[in-house]
Each structure stands twice: as C-alpha cells, then as structure tokens.
Write a protein that binds this DNA or RNA. Structure first.
Lengths: 216, 216
DNA sequence: AGACGGCTACGCTAAAAAGCGTAGAGGCTT
DNA sequence: AAGCCTCTACGCTTTTTAGCGTAGCCGTCT
C-alpha cells in the first residue's frame, strides 16, 4: 500500500515542524514537502504528486482560501485539509466554498489529524468538533431564513393571497382594485379579512406575514 | 483502552447484520445491541451505556430524525452517526439540525465506517463524500439568500431606524410617539422622511425594507 | 333543498397615513 | 461664524386604512 503524500502549508515554521513531527509517527503518511506561502504550494503541485495539503488559512497573500481555490480548480483531486485557529463562521464558510475537504483546528490531537487525513483521502469530509458546531449553527440560521418561504399559507383563500401579495408590493387598495378588476370595497373587505385572519394590526403585519410566507 | 460501545438502529435486518459483521472485525468497537425502531433505540439508552448510535434515517415512526432529536436532548453525550441511502438535502439538513454528528451513506466501506465512528467519538464530525458535497451546495445557496439581508442600512439616522423598527412591529404613529416620548407629529415627520429616503410608497415598503435589513 | 365558504360589493365613521410646507434647537464640522 | 445634519414640532389637506355591519351570487358538499 502506498503512503499518503502530504504537503504542509503554513507560514509559521513552528507549526510546520510540529505537524511534521506528528506525522512522522504515522507509517502510512509521508510528508513530502513544506510550504510557507500559497505561491510555494502551487509551485510544489507542479513538481510533486500530492494527495493531501494541510493548509493554513492565515497565510499571507495569496491566502489559504485563495490558494485552495486555485488548487481545486487546477488539481481537483488533491485534497485540502484546512488547518486553523479560527472558528469564525465566515472563515469556515469561505474555506468550504473554496473547496476544502475538511477543517481542523490547530490544537487537534494526533488521532484527529490522522483520522482527518484518512477521511479526506477517502473522499469524505472531516470537521473538527467546534467547527462542525459552527457550521451547523450557520446552516440552521440560514435555513431559518429560507424555510418560511416554503410553508403553506394555509388558511388564506386564493383571492386573499393575491390581494396580500399586491399589498406587500406597495399597492394601495385602489390600485389593487384596478389590477384585479374588482371594486375598492371588495379589496377593502379582503384586506379586513386578512387583518382578521392573520391577527395583524395593520399593513405592517400583513407585509411581515407575506414576506415570511415568501409571497413576495 | 475501553472499547467503543455501538448500537445499530435500522429496521432492515440485513443491514443490521451486515454492519454488525463489519464492526466485528474492529477490535476497539463493540456492538452492544441492535434496534429495529426508534422506540427500541430510546429504550436501549435507558438500560445500556452507549457511545455511538448508527442511526438509519428511514425507520418508521418515530423516524431516525425524531429519534435523534430525542436522544440528543435526553443523552447529549451519545453520538449519532446517520446512516442512509438518501443524499437529499432536506434529509441531511434535518438530520443535522436534529443533532447528528456525522453522516454516512450505506454503501460506505469498512474504512469509512471505522473512521466515522472514531471521528464522532472524538467529538468531531464525519460526512461522507457526496453528503458533504450536498451540504456545501446547500450552504452556498443559502448563503446567497442571506447575504443581501446583511447590507448596511447606510443613510438612515438612528432615530429613523428606531421609528422604522417600531413601524415594522405594527405600532401606529401614536404608539411610537408614546414609546419614544416624542410628539406624533415628529413620528410622522420621521415616517415621511423614511418614505422619502427609502423611496417607498407606503408602510408596506417600509416594512419590506426593515425586514430586508434585518431590523425586525 | 339547504348549508357553507368564497368572492363580490355597499354604507358609514373614525383613525391613520401620506403629501405638501415650515422651522427652531442643538451638535458637529469647516 | 456659517453650514450642515439630526431631532424635534406644528398646520393643513387629501388619501388611505381600519372598524364596524350587511348582503347578494355562485359553487360545492351534504
């Protein structure tokens, strides 16, 4: 069985040395090179066959994120394992968008490092503890912003829904009446029924509901 | 070193047997029980000490998702590794929201299974290949849906913002005046300035803006 | 045939918002 | 000191909503 060829990319020498030392202990992992900048990494790819890059996010320009992006478009088969101190959501999301296959915090243990490398080699993803927590939180939040759009707007009639949509589009009753070829009084009735059904106090409440339900 | 105590939950016996056979080969993993329903799983938790549950999503009521939810609220330390054929985004997201620590496809290999179990025991997350792809796609999409909402609400003064927030909360000018200890006329002026600045035709426009900017 | 829900519509009144203009007090900047 | 912005406030008019009630028409379900 071939060894897994790993490159360590970090602008801090201490980190490189540390990681290297840890990985020396693994008999199926081979650290074939170190890089101290994104430019180095990309250069290395052209001269070496690499399976996994341990990529620090915080390298100076080009950043780990940019570098990952480049790697992934030029060498899509190379796995990138992001290695960082940051748990900030934006970093994580950007790195993932760039195509990173896993995300480890720098204070991870030997076991985690090994497991993560194996995971990405298998084509899977590995996220360290707090990173996945952050990620899930992000997803939940983001989903919350999307989900209401798919709820069924249960108890409103079709006509009411139409009227509501137009209200939310800033049309006045008179304009709505014109658009729907009905009397202003009818629109008014619909509006009142809406206020009643949705327990809204005024237009603001109607618009909020409309937006929640994705009617706009 | 203690063995990792695993429970297999799936309503198909073949799957249970198969997984069991695979895990027998691991000398640090102990399959202590099998469950064929969510109810079984929860019952087992009360009588056994468990580290990891391999949870099928498709079990009948209660579903794997519901069961995971229950487990996670009653026994937060138990790790749940979702095991499924489905790569559908909604399934995945729901399972993650429920608190699953990892996500494997049923056609995963022995290596993946082992790695995933170790990952979740470590407190990390493991996502199989296609799952993480789906996940990333979802995140990217969702992020696109959120970004516009985080625009800076540039040109509004603080007071205007306050008034706008209250408007969006369905308060009338009179109520706002009372809350802010100012005259109704002042609120009216603010409201008019808002209409002007935001180029809104009426309350609906104001509320839409407020929601867009996340002021509600 | 009768009941019910949805859409239509009218009358009336009060309240609220929109559409103008104006303007002073206070703060900050130039 | 002059200029600009913010917050404050008032007057007046018109339009729009809100808050009641009522009611006919039509289709469906019972």
């Amino acid at each position: 069985m071939e060894k897994i060829r790993v490159v360590i990319a970090d602008d801090h020498k201490i980190i490189r040395v540390g990681l290297n030392a840890i990985l020396q202990l693994e008999n199926d992992i081979d650290v074939i090179a170190e890089a101290e900048s994104g430019t180095d990494v990309i250069a290395l790819m052209k001269t070496h066959v690499v399976d996994v890059i341990l990529m620090d996010i915080d390298m100076g320009a080009p950043s780990g994120i940019e570098t990952t992006h480049t790697i992934k478009s030029d060498f899509p088969d190379i796995k990138v394992l992001a290695l960082t101190q940051h748990e900030e959501r934006d970093y994580i999301l950007k790195m993932l968008e760039a195509g990173a296959n896993g995300y480890l915090l720098k204070n991870c243990g030997r076991d985690e490092l090994r497991a993560a490398i194996h995971a990405v080699v298998n084509g899977d993803s590995y996220f360290s503890n707090s990173v996945s927590a952050t990620l899930l939180k992000a997803i939940t939040e983001l989903k919350g912003n999307l989900k209401p759009a798919s709820k069924s707007n249960s108890d409103l009639t079709q006509r009411e829904t139409e009227v509501l949509q137009l209200i939310a589009q800033e049309y006045s009753n008179a304009e709505i009446a014109e658009k729907l070829f009905i009397s202003v009084r009818t629109v008014d009735t619909h509006r009142r029924n809406l206020l009643d059904k949705l327990q809204a106090k005024n237009t603001a409440g109607l618009v909020k509901y409309a937006i929640e339900k994705g009617l706009v």
